[in-house]
């Protein structure tokens, strides 16, 4: 059996809010294996966002251990966490989080600019290839405000994959999109996943979770359901079934 990409043991996270301790995560244990497509769902306050932040090395657990790609991360310093995020992870957010007044290309180049081992020529080439892969090869010089929501999210996906991460974390990536764009975006994730990249996706929409190969449900800081989806939906087929979009320029 493969070594898991994510190995989480007895993970707890407690926030202190005023006088009260809020237990966002209580004793979560979970393995995610390479090339899995995991959908995490749960009501708000169930701890799924906290879990994602810890997986994404944006936050550290109160107790328990977290191995990312075989490496213990809960004791790393701020700058070491930055390095892990840069080399191993890709993020996609609900609100896209692109730099405004900066071209799509430059947004995608961003993670590479924080590496010292990539030449300027390679930075450009890799960013262009990445945008090509999400179908935005023609719009590299557009600014985010000149792009639709679906296109902005494609830029964000291009940015998340430009550093060849082992794990892409998507926090409600389709939350701000219409059905068609949502399925297109999910299709991109399925494409990445088929290339061997592990994808973890947070969503509260069950029809989106249906595209994943595994579904995990959080409630009150605990995993209450964790099952493999033997027959995930295929985005390409679903898209074909949707009524043709009206001609919109």
């Amino acid at each position: 059996m493969d070594t898991p990409i994510v190995a989480v043991r007895n993970l707890c996270k407690t926030y202190r809010m005023g006088e009260m301790d809020v237990h966002a995560l209580r004793d979560v244990t979970l393995d995610i294996r390479p090339a899995e497509f995991v959908a995490i769902s749960g009501a708000s306050g169930s701890g799924k966002s906290t879990f994602m932040n810890i997986l994404g090395c944006l936050d550290v657990p109160t107790s328990g251990s977290y191995l990312l790609d075989g490496r213990e991360v809960q004791k790393l310093t701020r700058d070491e966490l930055s390095l892990v995020r840069n080399r191993k992870l890709g993020f996609v957010f609900q609100s896209f989080n692109l730099l405004s007044r900066t071209t799509a290309l430059e947004n995608v180049e961003l993670p590479l600019l924080y590496r010292r081992d990539v030449t300027a020529k390679d930075v450009r080439a890799r960013a262009e290839a990445s945008l090509q892969a999400v179908g935005l090869g023609e719009r590299v010089l557009h600014h985010p405000n000149q792009l639709s929501g679906g296109q902005q999210q494609r830029v964000a996906i291009a940015r998340s994959m430009v550093n060849d991460p082992v794990l892409i974390l998507a926090d409600e990536p389709t939350g701000n999109l219409d059905t068609r764009s949502s399925i297109e975006i999910i299709g991109l994730f399925q494409g990445l996943n088929r290339r061997g990249i592990t994808v973890v996706l947070v969503t509260h929409e069950t029809d989106i979770a249906a595209f994943a190969t595994r579904q995990v449900v959080f409630k009150d800081g605990r995993v209450i359901r964790d099952e493999v989806n033997g027959s995930p939906l295929d985005a390409a087929k679903e898209l074909a079934r949707l009524p043709k979009p009206e001609a919109v320029a």
Partner: peptide, 16 residues
Amino acid sequence: TREIGIRLAVGANGRD
């Protein structure tokens, strides 16, 4: 602040 957050998320460190 948000821009800083994005930069941190994609791997900028404190020094950057």
